[in-house]
């Protein structure tokens, strides 16, 4: 009755609410943890110490990560009336000259419209007021808006935040300059301000904005992936990897993205250790660094460890929130899926027996692309992007009972797969 023991301990027993308390202690103490920051260094030291004190076998693996700093930033509309905008510069953006950029605005709703009106964009600040369709489809405006605007002669770009809901909250994120295209300053603005400027533009009113951004990119910083293990008793070289990322954006607390994922990965090992269990294979929690810049720490981990790929049984990642779990997303062979369908049946006491398709996660994707079975946590995420990369990503969106359920699911799946006689078939 191992699965029941794990669930009981996590949800009703002495460990209930522990992952929530750990997350609160961690985020309240450290705060947010952007790549390259002192806070991220502190976060890694904190977790190294905490997991060691928890009795786990912990080590750090050095990696290099981007170091972008936001600096002071502001934006004001000057014409047709004075109004301050809430903005957040986008990761990797260049800054403006110290005196800022003051220019007329061109508002568009799509890249297609921008190309059609290319001649109007020269010397202007391009505002993208693209509607939110889904994160995956809409985030291309954040990622490539600056380069697309620069191609048609714009001097800066302002991107409507990638969120389906807003209370005048800007949402930051990484953006990518294209090679050979001039690098112009770029920031996100709120849905409200994007729509405001869109309405002015529809009325034919001239809009002028002054943008100041002190952003700069420093040399890559030293950082670490944080690795905690329970060594397998029979095949210690074979691994079930479970993970979340420790870095966050430099706003809010990074409690949801992805403090929760990191904490349930730690908690899964704690639960198994507390019950005196030890699986056949090694259980390895990896708390990634530099995820927000495109899975930078995870890519270096993959490069270093891919030589042992045949020993990776299953890779798991939680990076879409730790709200009420709905099921497990899984990518693997038909034979592996059959096994996983049996494994999730063990989660009947917490009503999460659904095995879905498409395991996903930036940090485990290199392994999955190479054919290693991958799993991710599917939670009730309808509000996830309300808070994502914004000041709203704090402990207030987390719930202890929901985290108990996520921890139980994570621990049962990881333990059972690690303890089966055979590895999952590729």
């Amino acid at each position: 009755d191992v699965a029941k023991q794990i669930i009981d301990l996590a949800v009703f027993g002495a460990a209930q609410n522990r992952s929530y308390r750990r997350l609160a202690d961690f985020t309240d103490t450290i705060g947010n943890r952007v790549s390259g920051s002192h806070n991220l260094e502190m976060a890694i030291k904190y977790m190294y110490t905490a997991m060691t004190q928890d009795g786990l076998d912990v080590h750090l693996e050095p990696v290099k990560i981007p170091h972008w700093v936001r600096g002071e930033e502001s934006a004001q509309m000057i014409v047709p009336r004075a109004k301050s905008f809430a903005i957040l510069g986008l990761g990797s953006s260049v800054g403006t000259p110290p005196e800022g950029i003051e220019a007329e605005v061109l508002v568009v709703e799509s890249f297609l419209e921008l190309r059609r009106r290319a001649s109007e964009a020269v010397g202007k600040i391009v505002v993208f007021n693209q509607p939110f369709v889904s994160y995956g489809l809409t985030v291309v405006y954040r990622a490539y808006g600056a380069s697309e605007a620069a191609k048609v002669g714009a001097v800066a770009s302002l991107i409507r935040s990638i969120t389906p809901f807003s209370i005048n909250s800007p949402h930051t994120g990484w953006q990518d300059y294209q090679d050979g295209v001039k690098r112009i300053p770029t920031a996100c603005i709120t849905v409200e301000d994007a729509e405001l400027m869109w309405r002015f533009a529809q009325r034919g009113q001239k809009i002028v904005v002054r943008l100041m951004m002190g952003a700069k990119t420093l040399p890559d910083a030293d950082s670490f992936n944080t690795v905690a293990e329970i060594k397998g008793w029979q095949h210690p070289e074979q691994v079930v990897l479970l993970s979340g990322h420790l870095d966050s954006w430099d706003v809010g607390q990074g409690a949801m993205d992805d403090g929760g994922g990191a904490m349930i990965s730690w908690e899964a090992l704690s639960l198994i250790k507390d019950l005196g269990l030890r699986p056949r294979r090694t259980l390895r929690a990896v708390l990634w660094t530099g995820e927000e810049q495109g899975g930078v720490g995870a890519q270096q981990y993959y490069n270093l460890h891919k030589v042992n790929m045949s020993n990776f049984d299953l890779v798991m990642e939680s990076d879409l929130g730790t709200f009420t779990p709905l099921g497990l997303q899984f990518t693997g062979s038909d034979a592996a899926r059959k096994v996983m369908e049996e494994v999730v049946k063990l989660l009947a006491p917490i009503n999460t027996t659904k095995l879905e398709t498409h395991g996903e996660g930036t940090d485990i994707s290199p392994w999955m692309q190479a054919g290693v079975p991958g799993a991710s946590l599917h939670v009730a995420d309808s509000r996830y992007f309300w808070f994502h990369h914004s000041e709203g990503d704090t402990m207030t969106v987390q719930d202890p009972q929901e985290m108990n359920l996520c921890s139980a699911l994570w621990a049962v799946v990881a333990y059972v797969v690690a303890d089966l006689q055979d590895m999952l078939q590729r």
Partner: peptide, 26 residues
């Protein structure tokens, strides 16, 4: 190499064995 149907029988046998093994953790 095993004939196709033998492999299929073997896979089915293995699947049912794994199902029984996993059920042991209930």
């Amino acid at each position: 190499a095993l004939p196709k149907n033998s492999r299929s029988n073997d896979t089915e046998r293995k699947a049912s064995h794994v199902a029984a093994e996993v059920a042991g953790y209930t």
